[in-house]
Amino acid sequence: MNSIAISHAELGMVLHELEFGVAASDLHGSLTGFLCGGGVASPRNWLQRLEIETDQSVETHARMELLDRLFRDCRAQLDDPGFSFEPLLPGDGEPLIERADALVQWCRGFLGGLGLSGANAGSALSDDGAEILRDFGAIAASQFEYDDAEEDESALVEVLEFIRVGVLLLHSELAPLPAKTAEAGRSLH
């Protein structure tokens, strides 16, 4: 990935300006779930694949280029052999409650995107993969309570790492191999 990563705030601002009616974390989660499930899309049609209506009267080239870049960056992170994937969430400087709520939105979006991908997750997953998917559902249905800031911060970091690793495992189990990798594995007779 040669471009500078898109920030949660930057994406949120663009989504607000475009009047998409979806939060930044939810959109990134939806895109990630769709791609993890093997959904087929391109930088130009992924919004339609996620069933997001766009209003061309408020679209600008710069705004749409950011969304194209979001798609390319997400795809590259998921396919990166260095496991660089990170859910797009508010930065560490934002209040804990905002980051935790964004994580819940991200998980909801992920599950929705996975459903839109057409993946048959029930039969295609290992026991670990099925458990991760159930845990994502539990997180998506959560409403957090905040008692101890230090303990809550530590718990959020642990859940975030679980989600990051879980996404990579689900991607490896559900998404088809990239064409060039599949071609490289074939032998010629």
Rank of each mutant, 00 (worst) to 15 (best):
G118Q: 10
R164V: 09
S154H: 13
E158P: 05
A102M: 05
R108Q: 12
R99H: 00
E158M: 14
E153N: 14
D147I: 15
G115I: 01
E158I: 11
V157Y: 02
A121Y: 13
A119W: 06
Y146V: 14
D128H: 00
G113Q: 07
L160D: 08
I139M: 11
Q105N: 08
E151W: 09
A102P: 05
I163P: 10
A138H: 10
E153W: 11
A119H: 05
D135G: 10
S126N: 12
L170C: 04
A141Q: 13
F144I: 12
F136L: 04
L156E: 10
G137L: 11
I97A: 15
H171S: 03
L133G: 12
L116H: 05
L170V: 08
A130Y: 05
D147T: 15
S123D: 10
R99Y: 02
G129I: 14
L114Q: 03
A155T: 13
F110R: 01
F110K: 01
D148N: 14
G166S: 03
L169R: 15
L111H: 02
G122K: 07
G166Q: 02
A141F: 04
S172F: 04
V159C: 12
S172P: 00
L111Q: 01
D152K: 15
V157P: 01
G109W: 07
V159W: 03
F162N: 09
A140E: 04
Y146K: 12
V167E: 05
L168M: 15
A149M: 15
D148Y: 11
A155D: 07
R164N: 03
E150I: 14
R99W: 03
A155L: 14
I163Y: 06
A155R: 09
A141V: 01
H171Q: 10
A138S: 12
E145F: 14
I97R: 15
G118M: 08
R99S: 01
L156M: 04
R108N: 10
S123E: 15
D128A: 00
G137R: 03
A140H: 11
R108P: 07
L116P: 11
Q105E: 11
G137C: 04
D127Q: 02
G122I: 07
R134S: 13
I163K: 00
F136V: 08
L114A: 02
G112T: 03
E145Y: 12
L103M: 11
Q143L: 06
E145H: 14
F144R: 10
I97P: 08
E151Y: 12
G112H: 08
L133P: 13
F162T: 11
L133M: 12
L170W: 10
F144Q: 12
R164M: 06
D148A: 06
A119S: 07
L168K: 10
R134M: 07
A141I: 01
A140M: 08
E131N: 05
I139T: 15
L114H: 08
E98N: 09
V165L: 15
L133S: 07
C107D: 14
L160H: 09
R134A: 14
N120T: 04
E158V: 14
Q143T: 15
E158S: 15
E151R: 15
A130M: 06
G129Q: 09
A102F: 09
E153P: 08
V104T: 06
A140L: 04
